[in-house]
């Protein structure tokens, strides 16, 4: 099986602070990590390769520093990794990101399965996977928590919905996004780490993939981030003390005052 895993480098914390003056993420002092959901995608890809043979290629669109993350994917079992990096890719929204990733997949030729994490922990949109599937004309299933069977150009997966599970049969090639229930990602191996240190990570640019400059980065984005801000929590709580009867009377009085009762 030829498998591609898409990964994103994200700040290693879920409590990202925002600079209130510039409305941008404060990245200083925060280590970048593999988007946690993507590490499940990588593990699943590596497990499928171990079972069916083939190759796992990790790809990421991002700045040059994402090379470190891609080297880490080699230590975790990926055979190869490619970074998609170009000034023109900067400021991409989910559509432009999906377009760029899809361009890389097309360049690779015959791919059986593309695995993504269900969403990133910084953007949280969960859109890149499905958009990419649409662009590649591949079958798509989101929230996969188990791959039940793969045979004869078909795959059967179990996906996790809010109200239960769905079993879905689809054709290959396919794109899936996975949840954290699908596996427990392995730790890196020593031989993997040593291999990853000397691994060469090729960088593919706009030109390398023959993409339309109008469809990538900020130019190709349908959406713009106008503002990022931390919601103001200026509501005040008032504690009412005293005997239960007094508390009830007091509360009722306040509700009436506010026209709520």
């Amino acid at each position: 099986m030829n498998i591609v895993v898409c990964l994103k480098q994200v700040p290693g914390t879920t409590e990202v602070k925002i600079n209130p003056e510039t409305n941008t993420l404060i990245r200083q002092g925060i280590k970048n990590i593999i988007n946690p959901f993507d590490s499940y995608a990588l593990e699943e890809g590596v497990r499928l390769k171990e079972k069916f043979g083939g190759k796992v290629t990790a790809i990421s669109m991002g700045p040059a520093q994402a090379v470190d993350m891609l080297k880490e994917t080699i230590s975790l079992g990926a055979d190869e990794a490619v970074l998609l990096s170009d000034r023109a890719f900067a400021g991409a929204d989910t559509w432009a990101t999906a377009y760029t990733l899809a361009g890389a997949v097309r360049k690779m030729g015959q791919i059986d399965l593309i695995i993504c994490g269900r969403q990133s922990t910084d953007g949280d949109t969960a859109q890149v996977g499905p958009e990419m599937a649409e662009m590649l004309g591949a079958a798509f299933t989101a929230y996969v928590c188990q791959i039940e069977e793969i045979s004869a150009g078909q795959m059967r997966v179990k996906r996790m919905m809010d109200e239960g599970y769905e079993i879905i049969q689809s054709t290959l090639p396919a794109v899936i996004t996975v949840t954290k229930e699908i596996n427990i990602p392995r730790l890196p191996s020593l031989r993997g780490v040593m291999k990853s240190k000397s691994a060469k990570i090729p960088i593919w640019t706009l030109q390398d993939m023959g993409l339309d400059p109008k469809k990538v980065g900020l130019n190709g984005s349908f959406t713009r981030v106008v503002k990022i801000f931390t919601p103001q929590h200026d509501k005040k709580a008032e504690m009412i003390h005293g005997e239960p009867e007094i508390q009830v009377t007091c509360l009722l009085g306040k509700l009436r005052e506010g026209g709520l009762a």
Binding site: L187, S189, L190
Partner: peptide, 20 residues
């Protein structure tokens, strides 16, 4: 099992017998 998968048992075995 995790230690085995991480190659920790290879650390003390000579390279000619698949160690590090």
């Amino acid at each position: 099992k995790d230690m085995a998968d991480s190659d920790l048992f290879r650390v003390f075995v000579p390279a000619e017998y698949e160690g590090l």
